[in-house]
Design a protein around this nucleic acid. Structure first.
Lengths: 325, 325
DNA sequence: CGGAGTTGTGAAAAGGATTCCATCATGTGC
DNA sequence: GCACATGATGGAATCCTTTTCACAACTCCG
């Protein structure tokens, strides 16, 4: 049915070895033969069977990506980066959504292991023992989770919240609330580190939560923030921040006149909210690209498997303003 | 390095054929042998090499999905459905983002062809000739594009806009604007069909566009809608509708008091907007699941490859209200 | 008790590509 | 003109699994 290397060999009047070489190591075969073989291959529409190639080379030219939740736009944007970079490197992408479940993540890594050269594991919810289990199966690059002695791409989460704190302090805020994300989240712990900066400004920080990283949690939190008497709020992520914004609008609290709101991730909808949301841009798409590069470096046993955290940047929009007097 | 079927056979003191049977056709091997083999396989952590299996069975247990743009939340939600259903059926998912480019789509199908049993092609931008090119390569199920005599999962786009028109008419609107999506879009043509319903209500419909299906286009369109004197607007999709909402807020036009806004897709952010967006729910996730079912039916040469359009439903929220008097 | 039918297992082929090794023809240097 | 290096090509082994075919042992029946 499908055209194989044998068909091409027969049609071109050469051996299969020559066809293989003509296509993948052109310098080993005479100019004229190469041209003939390639022409025949083209005419027949020959495409090498990657599974067969993978069997012998041990390389599949596939890469796996596991994300916790496709519904949060941060991950699709990261995925887009992975996708684009993978294609440039002639690799295909396997995708799995772990539904924020560490056990599933582990299972997915195992399931992918044989079909991919490596896996990009995003914001892993895995526990240490689960992690141990999969580490030997296949090369893994972590995104947004630092695992000792393992390649990873991390964003400067702490730096991001630090910038947010500086920004709010400069606007005169003396009391901010932080809406914690899930307790198991590595990024949440990192983001909290950045909040220590508040001491330097003599700013009070009230911790609320932990919350699920969802819109509804943001709505719920908004009332708590008001009750706490804070004039600004930093949310674990943009989706929650949008929930805060929505609830404040519902209660008639003007933003930013009475309350400033900061999110995290810079998902596209942050810019589309009314008022547009001030947020920390973690460079998700860039992180996706970097993860692919790192993985390819790991596979080629090149250097470049440990790189500094990606810089994050505060994007100031309309949802933050001077503290109310 | 990795443990193969040979290792298991040796360790269990049987032939490789027996191991293969013990694992995949258990009824063919004696109870006792089966148990021993399985125990050994388990102990050694044996996992069959899917590439090798695929080589001989011709089945890879992989499925490809091609979406036009991961940045639009409609597609991730569909993808999530595909993902979930595929996992239930023990299939893995290859993903590619075509960046709304027909030529890329065709290339991606070809690239995937050998590694997957079938491809789910979403809202294809391919031209007819491009389509011809890939149709023979691999079984394809289309989502949201009807191709004659080809399996597809389609949503009732026309029915959705029809419901939107009925809804607006019931609210007393006499003049609505429709914001067209890309000219090449099959779904845009379908959605327009639903607008004919307006005649029955004696409602005037002003066509604007075509626009790119983006937030910015919605902002741009909002001013045109106001200038046209319409009291309601139906946008090609939610992302555009959110743009309209944002621009109207900016210009101080109250929604829905002076203008009603309807979107399409029911992306999660539609519910999170202020005011919450009335929109047509196309059941993206369900469509994703249905596409997997259809594809599996095609592969098994079962029936069920042609199914009626998924019902769409208008979700009424706060962005639509009685026409201004 | 012998032949037919079952049942459980092993040997070997097949699937499509890569790559090592061998072969052959040519070209170079002495 | 011969030995040897070089370059182009073919043959065969290999990757790992499934599956066909063959075989042996056993049961059952006439």
């Amino acid at each position: 049915m499908a055209v194989t290397i044998q068909d091409v060999a027969k049609a071109a009047g050469v051996s299969v070895s020559t066809v293989s070489r003509a296509l993948s190591s052109p310098e080993m075969v005479r100019e004229e033969t190469r041209a003939r073989v390639r022409a025949v291959a083209e005419r027949l529409g020959y495409r090498p069977n990657l599974a067969a190639r993978g069997l012998i080379t041990g390389r599949t030219a596939n890469l796996g990506v596991i994300v916790p939740d496709l519904t949060n736009p941060f991950f699709p944007s990261m995925l887009k980066g992975v996708q684009a970079r993978a294609r440039e490197a002639a690799h295909a992408v396997f995708l799995a959504d772990s539904q924020e479940d560490g056990a599933q993540e582990a299972g997915l890594v195992a399931a992918m292991a044989k079909q991919v050269d490596g896996v990009i594991l995003c914001a892993s919810r895995m526990t240490e023992p689960q992690l141990e289990e999969v580490l030997g199966l296949v090369p893994i690059v972590f995104i947004n989770r630092a695992v000792p002695a393992r390649p990873s791409v991390i964003m400067d989460n702490a730096g991001g919240t630090r910038q947010a704190v500086d920004h709010l302090a400069a606007l005169g805020h003396r009391h901010a609330a932080y809406l914690n994300g899930p307790r198991s989240s590595w990024t949440n712990r990192e983001r909290r580190k950045g909040l220590r900066r508040a001491e330097r400004h003599g700013m009070k920080v009230t911790h609320l939560g932990p919350f699920a990283p969802r819109f509804e949690a943001g709505q719920q939190a908004a009332d708590l923030v008001l009750a706490a008497g804070a004039t600004a709020v930093i949310a674990y992520n943009d989706v929650m921040a949008l929930g805060v914004l929505a609830r404040l609008a519902e209660r008639g609290v003007p933003v930013p006149a009475r309350m400033s709101v900061v999110g995290c991730d810079d998902i596209s909808f942050a810019a589309m909210a009314t008022p547009a949301l001030t947020t920390v841009d973690l460079r998700g798409e860039q992180a996706g690209r970097a993860a692919v590069d790192t993985l390819l470096n790991v596979l080629a046993e090149r250097d470049g498997t440990r790189r500094p955290a990606l810089e994050s940047a505060l994007i100031v929009r309309a949802s933050t303003g001077p503290a109310p007097t």
